[in-house]
Amino acid sequence: MAIPQHTIDQILDRTDIVDVIGQFVKLKKTGRTYSGCCPFHQEKSPSFHVYRDKQYFHCFGCQANGNAIRFLMDIGSRNFIEVMKDLSSQTGIELPKDNHDSNKLKYKREAPKPKAPAQIQPPAQPAQQAADAAGLSPAPAFEHDPFAEFQAQDDAFYGHDPFAAFSQPPAFEETAQDGNLYDLLESIAQFYERQLPHSQNAQKYFRQRGLSRETIAYWRLGYAPEDWQHLE
C-alpha cells in the first residue's frame, strides 16, 4: 500500500502526540513540553520530552526521537502500514485502497541495456605516456570521465578550493513514490554530495586526510548534516 505524503501529513495534523505517548508514558507538563521516563531504556530521572507544538518527541538519554508514527512503530514493534491503519481509524482519514500499482514499490531492477559499440580511444595524453614509460599500470577507462569538471583547473589541490565546482548545485528533484529504487538512491547520493560545500569542518577533514578533489569526485564523497530529518 502506497500512502501519499499529504495523507500522512493530514493524519499527523489530527493526531495529538501527547495523547498518543501518554497512553504508554506517564508525562508531566514542564513549561512548553511534557517530560517523563523514556520507555526505550531504563532510567531513573526523566530525559524523555514531548513537544506538542512540534508534534515531536526526543530522549536526551538514548537519542530516540520522531513523530507519533515513529513512536508507535518503536513501542509496539509494528510496521508502518499497521500504525497508519490504526491512526487512520482514530482520525477518520481514509487510506488509499490496495491496488496493483503497489507492485511498483517492489523496485525490480531493470535489465541491463546493450552496450554501445566500442569507440576508438583518443591518443594518449602526456601524463599517460609518462606512466607507460615508467612501467605503471594505466588508469581504467570510463565512458564518462568523473574528473572532467576538474580538468580546466590544473593548480595544486591545497592552493585551490576543491569544492568550488560544487558551489552552484542543481535543484534537488523529488523522487516519485513509485519510482525506481536505484533512481531514489542516486538522488540521495546527490543530496549528500551537495551538502559538502556547506560544511567547512568536512572540507577541512578531507584536506587533513590528504584527499584530492579528483578522489572526492570519483568516490562521490559527501556530508550528512547534523539535523535528524534532512532527507524528509
Rank of each mutant, 00 (worst) to 15 (best):
S45F: 12
A2K: 03
Q42V: 06
R52K: 15
F172A: 13
F57G: 07
G36P: 09
S167H: 10
H49K: 13
R207P: 00
L27A: 12
D53I: 09
A118L: 15
I93E: 01
K54T: 09
K104I: 05
I69H: 01
F150K: 13
E43P: 11
N201D: 04
L185N: 07
E149F: 12
K54D: 01
H41T: 09
W219R: 12
E193Q: 08
L231P: 03
L196W: 00
Q5G: 05
P4A: 04
K54F: 04
E174A: 08
P138N: 05
D101W: 01
F60T: 10
T175Q: 07
E110V: 02
Q10V: 04
F206I: 07
E214Y: 10
Q177Y: 01
N201S: 03
I93S: 02
Y182G: 05
A152L: 12
N99Y: 00
P46A: 11
V18C: 11
L231Y: 02
Y34A: 13
D101L: 08
K26D: 10
D13H: 06
A118P: 03
P162A: 06
G159L: 15
K115G: 00
V83F: 03
D132K: 13
M1F: 01
Y218R: 15
N67G: 11
D178T: 07
H144R: 15
A134D: 01
I81F: 05
V83K: 02
P114Y: 06
R209P: 04
L136W: 07
T215A: 13
G135A: 08
A139E: 09
E110Q: 15
D9N: 08
K106N: 06
Q121V: 14
W219T: 12
C62E: 04
N99C: 08
I3G: 05
Q229D: 10
A152C: 09
P170R: 14
S137F: 07
Q90D: 02
I216C: 14
E110L: 15
A202E: 03
P122N: 07
N67K: 04
A224R: 11
H100P: 00
K85Q: 02
E193K: 05
H6T: 02
K44A: 09
A171Q: 08
K97F: 01
Q121M: 15
H144T: 15
H6M: 05
I17S: 09
L136I: 07
W228Y: 14
Y56S: 05
Y34T: 02
K106W: 11
A111D: 00
L185S: 05
Q23H: 14
Q55H: 14
K106T: 09
K115V: 04
V25Y: 09
K54A: 06
Q23K: 13
Y218N: 11
L196N: 08
A165Y: 14
D9R: 01
F147C: 15
I17L: 11
D98V: 02
H58G: 06
N99F: 00
M73V: 05
K54C: 05
K204T: 09
I21Q: 12
P138F: 10
R14M: 11
R109W: 07
K104Y: 06
D9C: 03
